[in-house]
Design a protein around this nucleic acid. Structure first.
Lengths: 230, 230
DNA sequence: AGCTTCAATATGTCTATACATATTAAGGGG
DNA sequence: CCCCTTAATATGTATAGACATATTGAAGCT
């Protein structure tokens, strides 16, 4: 147990037992350093950890305050299809469905402001069973190479990550009833629920790609465990 | 732009343009410090930032390596109902449905290994319209005070957070078809989809509470934007 | 009152140095 | 050949001092 860790634990105790109640402004770093008998840097290390965990908020000149959290702000990571499938012991498979077909996409094209687009629809399989349907638009102005790629062996997801760095991501999670294309490709009946992940990535204000990932609700769940401090 | 920030940007550039490809082991901190003409602490600050963002992995003695990410590992934060509702300009409302009624709960009681339980079911409303149904089990061994609380004015969520510190959280997100209780209380027809959040919290290996939050799929979406570094 | 200016202040960053410690790689014995 | 010991090494932590900078709150002006 390093000094900064035991200091953090003690601070956690004070927050939990309301010695430092929500909204309370804690002493200055220098005073804390004196109280705990360590250097200011060590105090900062402990405070940084609590700050990352969202338990305190720090502002220059204003000081450090205990966050008033009536609920928790847990963060979770969205798995990558291939990893998700392999983690369950399944055999990952990929199948291209169509490229640039006139078929209507559930995605919103207006985000790209008229830029030339590539439209790819493909399927991620687990043990040859449909697992996730991917419907994607790619901005050819921002990623010109995508015009020459057939995507018949590599998924646009993996292709893009290797080629196009992104600087901004927007992710949305929803529950929906299966669209027609979900029913067709995921083998679902009308009225079945699907878990939908929609994601848009940009690079320096230029929209790169927009994707809708739909999953069979009976086989898909996003799970995260966060064994916090303490 | 502080030194550590511009150093981080330069490192990002090298990762993106494959000067530092996936799997690559970067130079030691001391060498980097010499190259960039700063102290080792400044290099560490930049590396810590990249490490948090999940772009590099660091291990003692082994060095620092660029993570091989075929996809992205975006992290998102789950909103708190009340905040979610108020953020949309709605008026938050709370209504208790029942406590300790024999009614079957969709939750798994076996997690608590026979401990005495409190069962609470309640509703979170937006402008008097049902928004989220909460179904919760509380371990009375771990939180004895919960036996005396009626929960008729305060939601168990807020009550618990103020009283019982947690050290571990497990969260699951799913799409489901509305159960009977979802239909009854959220005003849904049979066959409607719901977005379900299930969460279990523990404190030092003792299970504290388990909750199922179901939301009308047509009104609920979890969204996060991460405007990362760069 | 309302507005601007300005100094006080707590956090943020940087440097330089020393020591701690996990982990790997090499060496030595069975 | 395998297991154990041991030393080398890159990251992790701690210290102490200096300076930077965002914000606040008060003083002064209109």
């Amino acid at each position: 147990m390093h000094p900064y860790e035991s200091i953090r634990t003690e601070m956690l105790r004070r927050i939990n037992d309301q010695s430092w109640p929500a909204g309370f402004t804690l002493p200055r770093e220098e005073d804390l350093a004196e109280e705990f008998g360590v250097a200011r840097g060590t105090i900062r290390r402990a405070l940084a950890s609590l700050s990352e965990a969202g338990l305190i908020e720090r502002k220059r000149r204003a000081g450090t305050r205990v966050v008033d959290r009536r609920g928790h702000r847990s963060t979770l990571t969205i798995p990558i299809v291939r990893h998700e499938i392999e983690a369950r012991g399944g055999q990952y498979g990929y199948r291209l469905i169509c490229v640039d077909e006139a078929a209507a996409s559930p995605l919103d094209k207006t985000l790209f402001e008229g830029a030339p687009l590539r439209h790819v629809r493909c399927l991620h399989l687990s043990d040859d069973k449909p697992f996730q349907l991917e419907d994607r638009l790619i901005n050819l102005d921002a990623v010109p190479d995508a015009a020459d790629e057939t995507f018949d062996t590599i998924s646009p997801n993996e292709w893009l990550v290797q080629r196009a760095p992104y600087s901004f991501i927007r992710t949305g999670l929803r529950a929906e009833l299966a669209h027609q294309i979900d029913q067709d490709h995921l083998g679902l009946k009308a009225g079945a629920p699907v878990f939908v992940i929609e994601r848009q990535t940009r690079f320096r204000d230029a929209p790169l790609t927009s994707v809708r990932l739909s999953n069979r609700a009976d086989e898909f769940e996003i799970v995260t465990e966060s064994g916090d401090l303490l």
